[in-house]
């Protein structure tokens, strides 16, 4: 498992090419999935349209459970894109990993902290943006001193903690899943017997990873909506 990341430096900026590749692949898959599913829209939904409408209703349910629809409706597209992107990213690393030489090319992009933390920081930045936009700077700032003024330092810490936990939770779950998958696959290098024996836990763990990947996508979207509602809702 001593894979290195294929780093490429362009104009003084480091790019991890495997991440670039996997991010692009996930984006394209999500885009194709969504666009193909909504290609032939009809009042009587069929096939993929049903699935996409189910996804929309699912995210709607998440939003409705954290804030009322009047303020939360605008986050529907964000939530949908997030949940689909993260889900697809989580799934990408499950069936196989491709390493070329010592460089790991194909893996879940969410098994990389830079990706998950980027998403987390983006989400938290969005919560601040919408907090200021929808409640005004004054009320936004006043929220830091509620319910008690001396909780202000905790509130500041909370923002960073939220960001870190949001990103690292996703990263940790997916990365751990891939490490274990790698180890189980690595068993086959030890001999035929170990390889055959390793297939059973490998299948089990893959199934569990599918579950974990779905749950993490859901949790990430859910927490995004929770943080957003903390910032944009009046009743807190």
């Amino acid at each position: 498992m001593e894979h290195k990341a294929p780093i490429y430096t362009w104009m003084g900026i480091d790019f991890d090419l495997s991440i670039v590749l996997m991010t692009t692949v996930s984006s394209i898959i999500v885009f194709l999935l969504a666009v193909l599913a909504t290609r032939s829209l009809a009042m009587k939904p069929t096939g993929m349209q049903n699935f996409m409408e189910w996804a929309v209703d699912f995210v709607k349910g998440i939003i409705n459970s954290t804030m009322d629809w009047k303020t939360g409706g605008r986050f529907l597209t964000l939530g949908l894109t997030l949940i689909m992107y993260i889900f697809v990213s989580n799934m990408l690393g499950l069936p196989f990993a491709i390493a070329y030489g010592h460089e790991l090319w194909w893996k879940s992009p969410t098994a990389d902290p830079s990706i998950t933390l980027t998403l987390a920081v983006m989400v938290v930045a969005l919560t601040h943006y919408y907090g200021v936009k929808m409640k005004g700077g004054k009320k936004y700032a006043a929220d830091y001193f509620k319910p008690m003024w001396f909780l202000f330092p905790l509130k500041i810490i909370e923002e960073f903690a939220n960001t870190l936990t949001l990103g690292l939770r996703l990263y940790g779950n997916i990365y751990a899943g891939e490490i274990l998958l790698g180890l189980l696959v690595g068993l086959s290098h030890q001999g035929i017997f170990a390889g055959v024996l390793g297939i059973i836990p490998l299948v089990v763990w893959q199934g569990f990873s599918v579950f974990v990947g779905s749950i993490q996508a859901f949790i990430f979207t859910m927490l995004t909506m929770v943080y957003l509602s903390h910032k944009v809702s009046d009743d807190h």
Partner: peptide, 9 residues
């Protein structure tokens, strides 16, 4: 954390 990753992502 290659900065390029973050920007690209």
């Amino acid at each position: 954390f290659p900065i390029g990753n973050i920007l690209f992502q």
